[in-house]
């Protein structure tokens, strides 16, 4: 049996799927580096000059959204991902969420 690292496994699983596109809002980024610390696949790196996060390995993103979770300023947007994997969805909350202008 061939040995695959976690990264390779994720790549294998994601083969055939569309790559995730990550957009960083540099104005929003506060430069805390939490996404760099938390990303299991090292997708992010700090830009040494501007001290804002940059996407260096978008191909390795497995769309776990840990970065989104830890980011204090919601600076990243992931495109083309399937987010409705939650076990429990509160309809009352969703109703309010949709209506926030």
């Amino acid at each position: 049996m061939e040995y695959l690292s976690r990264k390779q496994k994720m790549k294998k699983i994601s083969r055939g799927f569309k790559m995730v596109e990550i957009e960083i809002d540099e104005d929003a980024c506060v430069g805390c580096g939490s996404c760099v610390d938390d990303c299991p696949n090292n997708v992010y790196q700090m830009n040494e000059e501007t001290w804002k996060t940059t996407v260096v390995n978008a191909d390795d993103c497995m769309a776990c959204l840990s970065c989104h979770e830890i980011c204090p300023s919601q600076a990243m947007t992931h495109r083309d991902i399937h987010v409705a994997k939650r076990l429990y969805i509160d309809r009352k909350v969703n109703d309010v969420l949709e209506k926030i202008i």
Binding site: D25, P72, S73, A75
Partner: peptide
């Protein structure tokens, strides 16, 4: 629709 940190 971002948090306060985005403006801070």
């Amino acid at each position: 629709k971002k948090s306060v940190c985005a403006d801070c």
